[in-house]
């Protein structure tokens, strides 16, 4: 549905996007994930038509859209800060794209009604954006983006300006709406949790390049590079060597890995446990209460490992503990 072929984009000396090749499948929820300045928003803006690639092609529905301005591309977009027109009511905002298409007023009313029902905002038609909460504003923005019946929905960090509870609620809404409409969706975020929860596939970007492309499970459990391993989820990269199917660090560790040669073992906090007969011995240096769990930081063999535990009966800082390693863990080859 959306395809980028060898796309390059520079802003002065800054290479925002470098030789990016992507292909979004029809009806897919596709996320561009990466830290600030990695080129994800530029990529989205290239698809939207706000930026023109220096080289390469952007295709939507099989058609090269490079020469088309945003208003002629079959897209809808939700912006980070909602971008609702403050001088228009909720109705006016959602009706805006429909009125631009000069639809009869009756049809406009019908469509706006349907869209507001879809985003659970019936009854708020007459309110102005400033009279709405952040979550409600973002729902209006979503309804407006869908009003044009786009082929592709572009979402530019749409939840980042919301507080945690609303963010989680809207995350579910987004997923439900995307499922209902079956719209191909390109989502940009730096929040890995959001990306994992929402996406069919994730493209992790770094310095304008694609670092890894895969399903959330692949990206989380089989990170292709040390950057992806460090960026997606939390964990500690332990330098060592993969040999004969086991990880070695001075001695053989009882952890099965795939690959050979020097690299890093990725130890996720949720995969480590406290066990009297555990392989590693260490000392608790920090215990952070996170509500549903406590995250321990344990110093063992010169490493600072993180361990997630239920909040009950957690050892205090300074206590000596033994850690049981997972039987199998991701291994990232050196230079990856």
């Amino acid at each position: 549905m959306v395809e980028l072929k060898g796309v390059h984009k520079r802003f002065g000396p800054v290479r925002a996007v470098e030789g990016l090749d992507l292909r979004l499948r029809e009806g897919e929820f596709f996320t561009l994930l990466g830290p600030s300045g990695c080129g994800k928003t530029t990529t989205l803006r290239l698809v939207a038509g706000f930026e023109a690639p220096d080289r390469g092609e952007v295709l939507i529905g099989g058609e090269v859209v490079n020469p088309l301005p945003p208003e002629r591309r079959p897209i809808g977009m939700v912006f980070q800060h909602y971008a609702l027109f403050p001088n228009m009511t909720v109705f006016g905002n959602v009706a805006f794209p429909l009125r631009l298409r000069r639809l009869p007023e009756g049809e406009v009313r019908r469509r706006v009604g349907e869209l507001l029902e879809m985003v659970h905002l019936v009854g708020l038609e007459g309110r102005y954006p400033k009279e709405l909460s952040g979550g409600q504003q973002q729902r209006v923005a979503l309804a407006r983006a869908l009003a044009r019946e786009p082929k592709v929905l572009l979402l530019d960090e749409p939840l980042s300006a919301l507080d945690a509870r609303i963010r989680e609620e809207l995350r579910g809404e987004l997923k439900r709406l995307q499922g209902e409409t079956g719209l191909t969706t390109l989502y940009v975020t730096h929040d890995q949790e959001e990306a994992l929860a929402l996406s069919d596939r994730i493209a992790v970007m770094r310095e304008g390049r694609l670092e890894q492309l895969g399903t959330p499970k692949e990206v989380y459990e089989e990170p292709a590079t040390a950057f992806v391993a460090g960026f997606v989820g939390s964990g500690v990269l332990v330098p060592g060597e993969a040999r004969e199917g086991l990880f070695h660090r001075g001695r053989a560790w009882p952890v099965r890995v795939r690959g050979e040669g020097r690299g890093y073992l990725l130890l996720r906090p949720e995969r480590l446990r406290l066990d009297q007969g555990g392989f590693l011995e260490g000392r608790v240096v920090l215990a952070t209460y996170l509500g549903s769990l406590v995250r321990l930081e344990v110093e063992a063999e010169g490493l600072f490992l993180k361990v997630d535990l239920p909040p009950e009966g957690v050892p205090a800082p300074g206590e000596r503990v033994r850690l049981a390693l997972p039987p199998e863990a991701p291994f990232v080859p050196e230079g990856g």
Partner: peptide, 18 residues
């Protein structure tokens, strides 16, 4: 006036003049 508002209008189908 935030540029985002104009961009939103463009994505909604408005020409730059509109």
């Amino acid at each position: 006036i935030p540029r985002e508002l104009e961009e939103a209008a463009r994505v909604d189908g408005a020409t730059p003049f509109q």
